[in-house]
């Protein structure tokens, strides 16, 4: 489940020992993934930048709590998730941002916009498992840990979310697939 676990443990130990520069290496390992995840949660690149930076800054602040026990990625996603939820509550980011649009000549633009809107319109309980499991391709166990729910609850929400997304897309899918 954990990638590059040896290097990760070394970096976490360094960070916990006060070497804050180790966060740069951790950013190399996870920065891109956290950005993608926060962008998918927030649907706004500028907010995703903020959330990604803040996630790693919190890692620095909480470095004394770090344990190199293999659960770092889950912890990191949980921090990012909490920041996204705070941002969504603050700004109610429900509309499509300008950067979600594509060039006019691009194929399937309408479908992509419909998919983004449909995902954002899903209840959070359905949207988050879809982002973690179907987009981030995180295991059900780890996604359940990030969300603080049981694996059966995660799977139930994931399965319902897939169907809810399918049903919301309905006519858009028929036109484009």
């Amino acid at each position: 489940m954990q990638e590059d676990s040896t290097a990760e443990k070394r970096l976490l130990n360094a960070l916990a020992g006060g070497d804050s520069s180790a966060v740069g290496k951790l950013y190399e390992m996870y920065g891109e993934r956290i950005f993608r995840y926060t962008y998918r949660m927030l649907n706004n690149r500028s907010d995703a930048e903020d959330a990604t930076a803040e996630t790693f800054l919190r890692v620095i602040k909480r470095s004394g709590d770090l344990r190199a026990d293999g659960a770092f990625r889950t912890w990191l996603f949980r921090i990012a998730r909490n920041l996204c939820i705070d941002k969504l509550r603050q700004h109610q980011l429900l509309e499509l941002p300008p950067d979600a649009t594509y060039s006019a000549g691009e194929d399937r633009t309408a479908l992509r916009l419909a998919v983004r809107q449909a995902l954002m319109d899903l209840p959070q309980d359905y949207r988050e498992p879809l982002i973690l499991c179907d987009l981030e391709e995180i295991s059900a166990r780890e996604a359940a840990d990030v969300l603080g729910i049981s694996v059966p609850a995660l799977k139930s929400r994931l399965y319902r979310g897939r169907r809810a997304l399918r049903d919301k897309l309905g006519s858009a899918m028929e036109r484009n697939v």
């Binding site: 740069g24 891109e32 950005f35 930076a53 790693f56 620095i60 399937r108 992509r112 983004r116 899918m173």
Partner: peptide, 30 residues
């Protein structure tokens, strides 16, 4: 639906400018 979801969100990679800004902000604090 899953194929459409993947296709839609396959373009979410950070740009170099975004990467530079985020990294710089983190390292200024580190």
């Amino acid at each position: 639906t899953r194929t459409a979801l993947f296709a839609t969100y396959s373009r979410d990679a950070m740009t170099n400018d975004e990467n530079r800004r985020v990294y710089g902000r983190i390292m200024r604090n580190a």
